[in-house]
């Protein structure tokens, strides 16, 4: 099934003719933004268009098609297979993963349970369909810096949101798992808390993460790392978006057990990372031997610099 067909499949039958037209024509779309009573926006990462009712695209706002609440409800219901209760946990976290590994961000009115925990989300009026694209070979230029005579070096990928960290990590996992010209294939354990790396749907990975990769889907990172070490004995652990104190503790335990690490973290660069209090402990302990900074320029993501454990540039 093509990407276009996968995305068309997200819409109920009466909306399909419009989407079929636009999706068959624009095969490089990255995002579709649906907002209640607002124009439908399409983006390929560099440009933005409005969708017209006849399935054509335009830059003219007046011609744009606005999606109503009824349509949004129908789309949500269709995506959730008319079983919203089955997707309660994902809705609570604000996203859904669909066949093909695409992700749908959701926003609406949050219903709280206590003061901080979210019980559910109602009146969902905003959807962001992020079209998943595997970029096979995205990590090619990075690989020579990640191996030392066949031994894997722990790596941290750093970038602001939308610069391709997850895409890069996904390809890195695949190449480390399958093996490459710098090192043999090794078992990789992936803790995919937000189902973004494997894009698992009904427990099955939709993206190619390599032949020696085990995926723990929708599991909190801190719990998942230890669980994988105990149960699957990975040689390398990969996690996306390191962010909490518990993750750091689990990461240290993983490193102590001799497991290699591949992680991503939000940040502007190494200086920004050094300032983060929760990261200082692992930086002091020199758990990582490589820091890779990513940037976005003119809509394209690229590696801005690679640094060693002393934060000396290996490539810039």
């Amino acid at each position: 099934m093509s990407k276009a067909e996968e995305i068309i499949g997200l819409f109920p039958d009466y909306l399909r003719p419009m989407w079929t037209k636009v999706l068959r024509k624009m095969d490089n779309l990255q995002e579709i933004r649906l907002r209640n009573e607002r124009p439908v926006l399409l983006s390929d990462g560099k440009h933005e268009w409005f969708l017209k009712e006849d399935g054509q695209v335009t830059h003219c706002r007046e011609e744009a098609f606005c999606m109503g609440n009824r349509e949004l409800q129908a789309i949500l219901n269709h995506i959730c297979q008319y079983s919203l209760y089955a997707y309660e946990d994902e809705i609570r976290q604000g996203y859904l993963t669909v066949p093909g590994g695409h992700r749908i961000g959701l926003a609406g009115q949050v219903v709280l349970e206590g003061k901080e925990s979210i019980r559910t989300m109602k009146y969902i009026g905003y959807m962001n369909i992020r079209i998943s694209r595997e970029v096979l070979g995205a990590a090619d230029s990075l690989l020579p810096f990640l191996y030392d005579r066949g031994n894997f070096r722990n790596v941290m990928l750093i970038s602001p949101p939308g610069c391709g960290k997850t895409t890069l990590l996904r390809d890195l996992i695949r190449q480390v798992s399958d093996g490459n010209r710098y090192g043999d294939g090794r078992t990789v354990g992936v803790v995919d808390e937000r189902s973004e790396l494997a894009g698992a749907y009904l427990g099955r990975a939709q993206n190619n993460l390599g032949i020696r990769t085990d995926v723990l889907d929708a599991c909190p990172k801190s719990v998942g790392m230890l669980l994988l070490i105990r149960s699957m004995a990975p040689r390398v652990i990969a996690i996306d978006e390191l962010g909490e104190r518990e993750d750091i503790q689990a990461l240290q335990q993983a490193a102590l057990s001799g497991t290699g690490l591949m992680v991503t973290v939000h940040g502007e660069g190494v200086e920004d990372i050094k300032r983060r209090i929760f990261l200082q402990e692992i930086l002091k302990k020199r758990l990582f031997q490589r820091f890779v900074v990513l940037k976005k320029e003119n809509g394209s993501c690229r590696i801005d610099g690679i640094y060693d454990e002393d934060f000396q540039a290996c490539l810039r």
């Binding site: 008319y82 079983s83 209760y85 309660e88 809705i91 559910t120």
Partner: peptide, 10 residues
């Protein structure tokens, strides 16, 4: 009788 957010309703 489908499309409920609350599992108890379903």
């Amino acid at each position: 009788c489908s499309g409920y957010m609350d599992v108890k309703l379903q």
